[in-house]
Simulated scan of single mutants.
Amino acid sequence: MSGDLPDQPVLSDLLEERLGSLSPPAGDPGRAKEAGRRLRRRRAAVRSGAAVVLASAVVAGGVAIGLDGGDGGGDEGRDVVPLGRLDFDEGLRAYADPGVEVHLGGRTFPADDLGRIDVDGAATPFGLVYYDGGVPMLLGEDGRTGALEPGAERAGGPVPTAKADSAKPFVAYGAVLAGRRTVLVRDLAADRRVAALDVEDRPGLAVDALDDGVVVLRDEDGTTVWDTATGAEQRLAGAGTRVADLRNGVLLYDGPPPDGPAAADYRLVPGAVDAQLTFDGAHVLSWSSTLRPTAQGGAPLVLDEGATGPGPQYGWWAVDTDGSVLTAVPDRRGQGVRVHDCDVPSGRCVDLGRLRALSGDPQFIGVDG
């Protein structure tokens, strides 16, 4: 396997280009968290409609980089060099030491061997969904890539985000079909399209969440939910509200409480826009190895690894595709960071190894944000 692809941008180049301006938090998680939020606000301001990438110095998605139609390099349909068989049984476990190495499916690769995978990805149990020039692609467990949507055209501007469903084998993503921007939902297990929604006339549309076949859509007028089983779309909230996550009927939001007709269908929980829910909706993962319960009187979930004090802590966290929590914490000997995969709900953690993290913060790749 060769990473010598002179006409293709490599992951390290993309990380350097897009993330170079973000400094490590240097022991100040509050400042790092605010930097992540500023980047998320910048994304909304330019109406990129993109949010699904890797998490850097925030919980799964603080570096919110707008999809700009991809890097534009290479020819349409060119695959990543086949990587060989991967193992997703324990989750995707996709994380990187920027510019050095990438960990994916139980294997380790030099960063340049994943040159076609940029930072706009969505982790699913079936592989990594990413965009090549705005064309949705899937890197599967066999280590090969292919186009998700036959007939999708290269995008000359922003495309909606991709999001994975934890209740069904679904993924929602954007594509340009017959010259029109479209949000699609695909059943990855059956490899079939479930639903499609034309969003050409809705500038800046973003996909904020996907749960049990229901897609949360946000545009300049506010947030709606689209039920792919019935095709119905219903108002959820106004323009000042942001949905951070939706899992198992629990809706995590930032800003004014959702007040649309669809809000009655969910248990509403306030939280930071860069937080995540566990797949059962029982806990909020937000800048700490202590996960806050969503139900009144519920007990917190405390992971065996990572800082657990009140308020934001120094470290990096993300929910993996199998519902476990990935966390990167400073090595106790002061040498880089150690990455752990922590079970939910027991909190027990498995040590995945050390990253030198010489080029900056460790990155969780393709994790829902």
Rank of each mutant, 00 (worst) to 15 (best):
M1A: 14
L5I: 07
P6N: 06
P6E: 04
Q8G: 04
V10P: 07
D13G: 08
R18Q: 14
R31H: 10
E34D: 13
R38H: 12
R38W: 14
R40C: 02
A45W: 05
R47W: 07
A50E: 13
V52S: 14
V53T: 10
A55K: 06
A55D: 11
L67E: 12
D68P: 03
G70R: 00
G72C: 08
D75Q: 12
R78C: 06
E90C: 04
L92I: 14
A94D: 10
D97V: 14
G99Q: 01
G105V: 06
T108S: 12
D113L: 15
I117C: 00
A123R: 07
T124Y: 03
G127Y: 03
G134E: 06
V135P: 02
V135Y: 02
P136W: 05
T145S: 15
T145R: 01
G146Y: 08
K163L: 13
A164W: 08
A167G: 13
F170W: 15
A172N: 04
A172L: 01
R181E: 13
R181L: 14
L184N: 03
R186D: 02
R186A: 12
A189N: 01
R192M: 05
L197W: 14
L197D: 14
D201E: 15
A209C: 06
D211V: 07
D212V: 01
L217Q: 10
R218N: 09
V225H: 01
T228S: 06
A229R: 13
E233W: 02
E233D: 10
E233G: 03
A237P: 05
A244Y: 03
R247G: 00
N248S: 15
G249P: 00
L251G: 00
P258H: 12
R267P: 05
V269N: 00
Q276F: 02
L277D: 02
V284I: 15
V284N: 04
W287R: 15
A295R: 07
Q296H: 07
G298T: 10
D304M: 05
G306L: 01
A307C: 13
G311C: 04
Q313M: 07
W316G: 10
A318L: 10
S324V: 03
V329G: 04
G336L: 11
C342S: 06
D343H: 12
P345M: 02
P345D: 06
R348E: 14
V350S: 15
V350A: 15
D351Q: 08
R356Q: 13
S359W: 06
P362G: 10
Q363P: 00
Q363A: 11
F364I: 02
G366F: 12
G366I: 08
G366H: 13
